[in-house]
């Protein structure tokens, strides 16, 4: 500590220790906020269309088109360490081979608390299809609205805001929408 350089050196070394402790405390503090988001999700209609697969003109591919309504109040999830929320709608079904699938069919990024009341009526944003290229014989699916809380400092937290109360069956494929 005798010269200017050594004072700067010592001070910044202790500052970095303090900073690490502070960041750890901020990261841990987000576990104190255990508020849950309340929401409602309903599937208004579902259609399965047999269409041509991309790139393979002679192959048929079933695409599911899902219309849904979402109302969810995610504002309790915003606290001092919340940077943004990632909200997504997931289709959960077991396919014919018995493999459990979770497919994200819609998502939204919520950056501000003012936008955290989500009211959305619409259809899936991302193509929903099964790897076996057909939904025939696939048991009814569950749909759930899930979110990730992205913090400024710390770990990503997962949660579920809403879920369909009844399973939704896949209808027979139709040739056009």
């Amino acid at each position: 500590m005798h010269s200017i350089f050594s004072r700067i050196n010592n001070g910044s070394a202790f500052l970095s220790s303090c900073m690490m402790a502070l960041l750890a405390a901020i990261a841990l503090s987000s576990f104190l906020f255990t508020a849950n988001a309340e929401g409602d999700l309903s599937i208004s209609s579902i259609k399965v269309v047999s269409s041509n697969a991309r790139r393979y003109p002679n192959k048929k591919q079933d695409l599911a088109f899902i219309n849904f309504n979402i109302t969810a109040d995610l504002s309790p999830l915003f606290h001092w360490n919340t940077k943004q929320l990632f909200l997504y709608l997931e289709a959960e079904y077991v396919n014919k081979q018995g493999v459990k699938n979770e497919v994200v069919i819609w998502d939204r990024i919520i950056r501000r608390k003012e936008d955290a009341f989500v009211k959305f009526v619409g259809k899936n944003k991302y193509m929903f299809r099964d790897i076996s290229s057909s939904f025939k014989g696939v048991p009814p699916a569950n749909y759930s609205l899930k979110y990730n809380i992205m913090p400024y400092v710390g770990v990503l937290q997962y949660g579920e805001a809403a879920r369909t109360t009844k399973e939704v069956a896949f209808p027979e494929p139709q040739s056009r929408l």
């Binding site: 901020i26 503090s29 606290h79 001092w80 360490n81 400024y152």
Partner: peptide, 8 residues
């Protein structure tokens, strides 16, 4: 202060 005012 940040925790009390909920602002980083």
């Amino acid at each position: 202060a940040g925790f009390a005012l909920q602002d980083l």
